[in-house]
Simulated scan of single mutants.
Amino acid sequence: MATFRTLPSGKVQCQIRKAGQKPISSTHPTLEDAEQWAREQEQEQSPANTIQLLAPLYLSEVMIKAGKKRGGYDSVENRLTVVARNLRTTALEAITKEDVVAYRSHRLNAVTGSTVRLEIQLLSRFLRWAKEEHNVACEDVTQGVKLPEAGKARDVIVEPDELRRILKWASEKSKPIIELAYETAMRRNEILAITPYMIDLDKRIIRLMGDLTKNGEARKVPLTLRAMEILKEQCKGKQVHQRIFDISPYGITQAFRRAARIAEVENVCFHSLRHTAITNAAEKGLSTVQLMAVSGHKTLSMLSRYAHVKAESIAHLLD
């Protein structure tokens, strides 16, 4: 905060105090000159509105609802970290379209087009949020920047024999999680969040709250008979609100990757189990609406990226 006082000489002294900092002062011929200096100093000392500075605020305002993290929180946090690292010292007001183009070119040397596309789309939302919610004098300069292609959807599914081989080499802690993903099409983080309270075996569903799902909307996951058997076993001895699986997201990803490698099942990852479960449901003849209930997707375009139905699997339906 700036304070002014007139000296016996008639000149004006300005002093600026900020919490945690030593005060600075300067003497000027007129009050107008002193005020101009104060404005310049306060602008220089004010932290720039960078992505790195505002990211925690964005996460708390946009990605937390009713005190709980929304689905996709971790992914957004990781993407913001990457974008901030590449635009670390650039104030939002100073980011240009050319900066975004340069960012796109730089990142395409390291990651896929789909990843860069998601990062730039997040930057777009971040800039609009800063302007609309916090009056930052920035513009969405990503508009007009050609986004990389989304990339071909993963079409590798895990065949039953491949699943048996993977389970043979999987750790005891990871086996039920792998099977549940194969049976339910649930995402990794959704499975790891399951508690006995969420399970209704009479209705054969798991209730997922909005803070656990990727799109932030609550949904009910239908259960196969095998999924019910797994859940019954895993709930034994667990408190009603205790998570039934004690393993980190990274841990289960690595456990699956290791088992698949030893089992010589190539080009699959843990998320391939979700693709497989949705494809299996589609091949059983479920309608589009029913498939969306299984997958949790809200649009047909997203569902189509996951259901990889083989022609030979539906030929008999044409008879």
Results as ranks from 00 to 15, higher is better:
L208M: 12
R204K: 12
E172P: 13
E217Q: 09
I194D: 14
P222V: 12
M186K: 09
Q234V: 13
I205G: 14
K146L: 10
I191V: 04
K173T: 09
K220Q: 04
R188M: 10
V221E: 01
K232Y: 00
D211C: 00
R226A: 05
Y197I: 15
N215G: 06
M209S: 09
K220M: 01
N189P: 11
K152F: 09
K173S: 13
G216F: 02
N189L: 05
V221C: 03
R207Y: 04
V145Q: 12
M228H: 04
P160N: 06
A218V: 03
V141L: 06
E149S: 12
L192E: 09
S174E: 04
D200T: 15
A153Y: 12
L231Q: 07
S171N: 02
R204C: 06
I194N: 14
P176C: 11
L163G: 11
L223E: 00
L231Y: 06
G210D: 05
P176R: 04
E162I: 01
M209Q: 06
A185C: 07
K220C: 02
I157Y: 00
K220V: 05
R154I: 14
E179S: 04
T195R: 10
G210W: 03
L167S: 06
V158D: 00
E172L: 14
P196V: 11
R204N: 05
Y197T: 15
K173D: 13
M209R: 03
R154M: 12
I230G: 09
D200H: 01
L147M: 11
D161S: 14
G210N: 09
I157T: 09
A193D: 15
L201V: 09
R165P: 08
L223Y: 07
K168Y: 10
D155F: 01
D211P: 02
T195K: 15
K220G: 05
G216V: 04
V141P: 14
L163T: 02
V141Y: 14
S174D: 11
T213F: 08
M228P: 10
I191K: 02
I230C: 05
V145L: 04
I177V: 12
V156G: 03
Q143F: 06
G144F: 07
V158E: 00
I191F: 01
P222A: 11
L212I: 03
E233V: 07
L163Q: 09
K232L: 00
